[in-house]
Design a protein around this nucleic acid. Structure first.
Length: 282
DNA sequence: CTAGGATCCTGTCAGC
DNA sequence: TGCTGACAGGATCCTA
């Protein structure tokens, strides 16, 4: 679930809570969740935290990097006086850490901790140097951040995928970075287009609106703390607000469309569960 | 080059 | 209650 806004929420949280802390120890509870040599991480300070698309990039004082990808079910949880947790929304947020789904955790020298939880083990943390980061298969193919794309860039990108369904194209990270299933559906709703339409069936106006929609829904989500962010202070399970407050179609099947009153439906498109309004998406 | 399907893994939920 | 199959918000690898 973690898409661009959720990962950006984590980035901001970590910026607040772990910047400049020194890693005292790394515990790997699941081998496949941690790639590379943990010795390169131990005793290093957190120098900088960046993000590209859905990837979190943590720079260490020895100039190594940890790339974190949460995939479907990853979460990052910081504990130490205050608590910060974001990512996949399941009960793991409130469990005692390390929990059932904790795969890797870091102890900092001030006694605080950072946990990487991941129910399905699709996510990972990878240690690499600057060159490795540059040549990383995922990162090097990654498309632009949505807000760095001009309307013409987006239009030209669509032209390269004539017959493909629009949703499949915006979900492909090499075309545009950070869009996942939630924001793909929300963006299509914003632009009033059905997600399975062929790229070459969109006119320029619809394409412009789609790019605008993707940027707007993701920005709104970042501004509200991501769709799944929990609380900063206590582990009371307070829910993030994006889905409840802003989602127009995602997980609203059977409910009324807030724009036209028709019933939101769910189907399958581009191999994914897809939510749309039959009334106002054409 | 693009497009579609299987796959990694665990958990949950609907239906019988 | 227990079993089974479908499905879950991602990305990759393989085939056509």
């Amino acid at each position: 679930m973690p898409e661009l806004p959720e990962v950006e929420t984590i980035r901001r949280g970590l910026d607040k809570f772990i910047l400049h802390k020194r890693i005292k120890n790394v515990t790997i509870l699941c081998d496949k969740s941690f790639r590379g040599d943990k010795k390169l991480v131990v005793n290093q300070k957190i120098k900088k935290i960046d993000r590209r698309g859905k990837a979190l990039l943590i720079n260490l004082s020895n100039d190594m990097w940890m790339m974190v990808h949460l995939r479907m079910t990853g979460q990052m949880i910081f504990e130490g006086g205050e608590k910060f947790a974001a990512g996949h929304p399941d009960g793991g947020f409130t469990e005692q850490m390390p929990g059932r789904h904790t795969r890797v955790y870091f102890d900092f020298d001030d006694g605080t901790h950072l946990y990487f939880n991941d129910q399905r083990k699709f996510g990972f943390i990878a240690v690499m140097d600057e060159l490795g980061l540059k040549e990383d298969k995922f990162l090097s193919k990654l498309g632009p951040e949505p807000w760095n794309m001009s309307e013409d860039d987006f239009w030209n990108m669509l032209q390269r995928h004539k017959a493909a369904p629009i949703k499949a194209v915006i979900l492909d990270q090499s075309n545009i970075a950070g869009v996942g299933n939630i924001y793909a559906d929300e963006g299509c709703f914003y632009a009033r287009i059905l997600p399975w339409r062929r790229c070459d069936s969109l006119d320029k106006e619809e394409a412009d609106l789609l790019l605008e929609g993707l940027c707007k829904v993701m920005q709104a989500s970042i501004d509200s703390g991501g769709s799944t962010m929990k609380d900063y202070v206590r582990a009371d399970g307070t829910k993030g607000s994006y889905l409840e407050k802003f989602a127009q179609v995602f997980r609203r099947e059977g409910l009324e469309c807030r724009r036209c009153g028709a019933m939101i439906e769910k189907t399958r498109a581009a191999g994914r569960g897809t939510h749309y309004c039959k009334g106002c998406q054409k």
